[in-house]
Amino acid sequence: MPTASWNGAIIAQANDDQVEIVENNVYFPISAVKQEYLRPSSHTTVCPWKGTASYYDLVVDGQTNATAAWYYPEPKDAAKQIAGHLAFWRGVTVER
C-alpha cells in the first residue's frame, strides 16, 4: 500500500490500484490525501507533456515544507490518468 509521510505524519495512503506511477513519481488520488496537511501555494510549473502543475505546501506540527506536493488541475491528454491525483517531493518519503 503506497504511503507518503513527512515530519512524522502520514500525509497520504492508498491501495496499489488507486495510484498512478508517472516518471517514477507516485500520484495519489486526492481523496487519499489528508487535506488538513495541505496549504495552497501560488507556485506553478509547466511540463511540456503533462501541462501546468499547481502546488501545495505541507504543514505538519507547525513545520512547513514549501511546494512539497503538486498536481495537474487540467492535465494534457497524454497525462489524463493523473487528473485528480497529487504527488510529493522535497523530503516527503513515499513507500510503495
Rank of each mutant, 00 (worst) to 15 (best):
Q63F: 12
A83S: 15
E20G: 03
V60M: 10
H43E: 15
G91C: 07
N7E: 13
L38E: 07
A68H: 01
A32Y: 07
E23L: 05
L38Y: 03
Y37G: 05
Y55I: 01
Y71F: 11
V19G: 08
I11S: 02
T3V: 14
Y27G: 01
A32P: 14
N65I: 14
C47P: 04
P48G: 14
N15M: 13
P40D: 11
E23Y: 02
S5K: 07
F88M: 03
T3A: 11
A87T: 07
I21T: 13
A14M: 05
A14W: 02
T67H: 15
V94L: 04
G84R: 09
T52Y: 05
P73E: 08
L58M: 01
A87C: 02
I82K: 13
I21Q: 14
W49R: 00
G84S: 07
V22A: 14
N65S: 13
Q18H: 11
N15E: 15
P48D: 10
N15F: 15
A66W: 12
D77R: 11
V92L: 04
A78T: 11
S41H: 00
Y37W: 12
P48V: 05
A68G: 10
D77H: 13
D17P: 13
Y37I: 02
P48H: 01
S5W: 05
G51F: 02
V46T: 15
T44S: 00
A68E: 04
Y55G: 03
V92S: 04
P2A: 00
E74N: 15
S41R: 05
D57W: 00
P2N: 00
E20T: 12
L38C: 06
Q81W: 07
A83W: 11
W70D: 10
Y71T: 04
D61R: 02
C47V: 00
R39I: 09
L86P: 06
V19S: 12
